[in-house]
């Protein structure tokens, strides 16, 4: 080994070996990943502790006699969000946000099929509870909570 230069004898680790990650180092880096995952999950949980749901305004939507059975009316609630009020029966009123839960296209009411249809990707929701009947949406339409005050319908909240 007489021809080994002195610098190589002093620094016997190759350039290539210097970049090798050992299993121990990888495992230690996994521990940091674990801590980061915990902190992220804890931050999400902490963000919800003590957080109250959003407060919704109370807005008059329509008079009960304004809509015929099978009729629909578009209104905005709570912050200029388009919503649709449906009269399914003489005493049955429901309202939903009009934005499709797939990609946000406005849904329209099909009285014959009792569904709300999205024209963009043919998503379909039940008119009575907003659940998905067909198409790409995976979540139901958010429902507007209605209150009947005398002969008037008021929107008082939104239930996702």
């Amino acid at each position: 080994m007489a021809d080994t230069p002195a610098w190589k004898a002093d620094f016997p680790i190759d350039w290539h070996d210097d970049h090798v990650v050992t299993r121990r180092e990888f495992t230690r880096s996994l521990a940091w990943t674990s801590c980061a995952s915990f902190l992220a999950t804890a931050a999400l949980a902490a963000g919800t502790i003590g957080a109250r749901g959003p407060r919704f305004p109370e807005t008059r939507v329509a008079g009960a006699g304004e809509l015929p059975v099978g009729g629909a009316k578009v209104f905005v609630y709570p912050n200029d969000e388009p919503c649709v009020l449906l009269r399914l029966d003489a005493d049955v009123f429901v309202a939903f946000l009009q934005r499709c839960t797939h990609l946000g296209c406005p849904v329209s009411y099909e009285a014959g099929r009792q569904t709300l249809e999205c024209p963009c990707h043919e998503g379909s929701f039940r008119a009575d509870d907003g659940t998905v009947v067909a198409g790409p949406p995976s979540r139901p339409l958010p429902r507007v909570v209605l209150q009947r005050r005398g002969g008037e319908l008021w929107a008082v909240g939104v239930r996702p």
Binding site: T27, R28, L30, F38, L44, A46, P160
Partner: peptide
């Protein structure tokens, strides 16, 4: 998605996993 139930439980389980991982390391 606005479903806050289970978030605290997820954080606690994650904490246990973190403690376990650090203990192993």
């Amino acid at each position: 998605g606005g479903r806050q139930r289970g978030l605290l439980a997820a954080a606690m389980v994650s904490a246990w996993c973190c403690v376990g991982a650090c203990g192993l390391v």
